[in-house]
């Protein structure tokens, strides 16, 4: 028996298909991203970090000692997995997480005040620099938070928590009239 599986985004029913009016503070949700987890073998942590930094194509998120997430918006999950497996064949274990995680992109001048309602970590520009990333607790949900720009943050969350986190972010952003929508495909 063959079955057809349809790829659905967990927020499909909660967001309009057409992008609405974009407010100053905006929550942008890419429909698909390529995400793989990279776990360095014992004693190879430094060479894995160096190898990934040298490859330059992916953005690296810290999740724990020797454990990283590699995120790419341009590559497909298959090609990202293949490329990193070749690059780090002898030094790390690579597992595809693309269908298991959801990416939230927050941008706008009030983003830090918005995030402060759920995250207890210091997000001051001098403390949490551009490119910094870490696992943090947002409300009751563990997310991977990264600073991607001056006032831009990316949250990567487990797929099953995406709806709950989306609801939380909407409540947290109500004061700032946060708008939300899927990324416009280029």
């Amino acid at each position: 028996m063959s079955r057809t599986y349809i790829s659905r985004h967990p927020l499909d029913d909660l967001l309009p298909l057409e992008p609405g009016i974009r407010a100053v503070d905006h929550l942008d949700i890419p429909r698909s991203s390529a995400i793989v987890s990279v776990m360095a073998m014992d004693g190879e942590e430094a060479s894995v970090t160096a190898g990934l930094a040298a490859s330059g194509v992916v953005s690296i998120r810290f999740t724990g000692p020797g454990e990283l997430l590699a995120v790419s918006q341009s590559e497909t999950p298959e090609s990202l997995h293949r490329n990193l497996s070749l690059l780090l064949a002898e030094t790390a274990y690579i597992v595809d997480q693309s269908d298991g995680r959801v990416v939230f992109r927050l941008s706008g001048p009030n983003v830090r005040r918005l995030l402060a309602k759920g995250i207890a970590t210091d997000l001051h520009p001098a403390m949490f620099e551009i490119g910094a990333s870490s696992n943090v607790l947002c409300g009751h949900i563990s997310v991977n938070l990264a600073r991607t720009g001056e006032n831009e943050f990316e949250l990567i969350v487990m797929r099953s928590f995406a709806v709950a986190l989306f609801d939380d972010l909407k409540v947290m952003g109500r004061e700032f009239d946060l708008s939300a929508g899927f990324s416009v495909r280029v």
Partner: peptide
């Protein structure tokens, strides 16, 4: 007191 704590929501160590 010395205790084992797990950083479950962070690095999980």
């Amino acid at each position: 007191y010395r205790e084992h704590w797990q950083h479950g929501a962070g690095c999980r160590r």
